[in-house]
Write a protein that binds this DNA or RNA. Structure first.
Ligand SMILES: [Mn+2]
Ligand SMILES: [Mn+2]
Ligand SMILES: [Zn+2]
Ligand SMILES: [Zn+2]
Lengths: 137, 137
DNA sequence: ATAGTTCGTGCAACCGAGTTGCAAACTTAC
DNA sequence: GTAAGTTTGCAACTCGGTTGCACGAACTAT
């Protein structure tokens, strides 16, 4: 739905260019987080740098969040509407060792461990690895 | 202590070559986890590939573990003697946003979250980011 | 409407971490 | 000793990410 795409962009104060609409379209279609190289392949002919900067813009405006899953490339996924990317909204991610897909476990908040004296929590990246339900059966 | 170094290597069934002794020496001196590029700089003249393969060997023999801290390069730190790198021995890591150092929080075990049906836990990487006690004061 | 300015895009070039092939040096087994 | 296996050094390469720059589209001020 074209209208919804533009709506989302407007809500996050991102000027809805053609490129950005296309990228957001792709992002919305994903059930798992996507990397820049993967995103690149979704287009017949698209420039890496432009996609890179598009993702960067999206992230700066908290439309998407990035996940360091250790797979060699950063992965990106849509934030939930109410998300402000603050520590209390962080969730666990799951990387499947078999299919390589990275899932947002939106229902699993990242626990905030008791750090030693003097250490200050500001953010966290919690990636669980294993076999996903799809690869399991 | 030269003897201790060789001892550790022997214990983990790693042939104690000169290179490996040197690398293990450096690793033991670190209070925070070290990356391959950082390790490279610790030597006047050392080959990246050799260091790389040395770290790989160490890891395969569970002398060290690697940490995906999202800093752009993998970090490595010594395992504790009893460590077998199994899920229950995993600990939290802390990356300081200021000095960039990565700490092993050996006293903080990685919690094992309740995954949805069909998802199987096999490993995890839990990195907390913030300001370390050294940068705080 | 025009001119000036800002913004987005495309292309090429670059960087740095990690990785591999290969040959020389070294170690171990016989 | 020689032969076989292992470790090392060097060079080359891959790949994700990032930047400089120039062109064109869009927006602003006059
Ligand atoms: Mn997520
Ligand atoms: Mn550690
Ligand atoms: Zn899977
Ligand atoms: Zn610090």
């Amino acid at each position: 739905m074209k209208k919804e795409i533009d709506n989302k962009l407007n809500l996050k104060n991102i000027k809805p260019t053609a490129m950005r609409q296309l990228v957001l379209q792709v992002l919305t279609e994903q059930k798992t987080a996507i990397s820049l190289p993967e995103l690149e392949q979704k287009f017949e002919k698209a420039d890496k740098a432009t996609l890179y900067r598009t993702l960067k813009t999206f992230q700066e405006h908290q439309l998407i969040h990035s996940i360091e899953d250790g797979s060699g490339s950063l992965r990106y996924a849509l934030c939930e509407d109410f998300c402000t990317c603050e520590p209390e909204h962080l969730h666990v991610h799951f990387l499947c060792n078999k299919c390589g897909k990275t899932y947002c476990m939106k229902d699993l908040p990242v626990p905030q461990p008791d750090l030693p004296n003097g250490f200050e929590f500001s953010s966290a990246n919690f990636v669980v690895k294993g076999i996903c339900s799809n690869c399991k059966k």
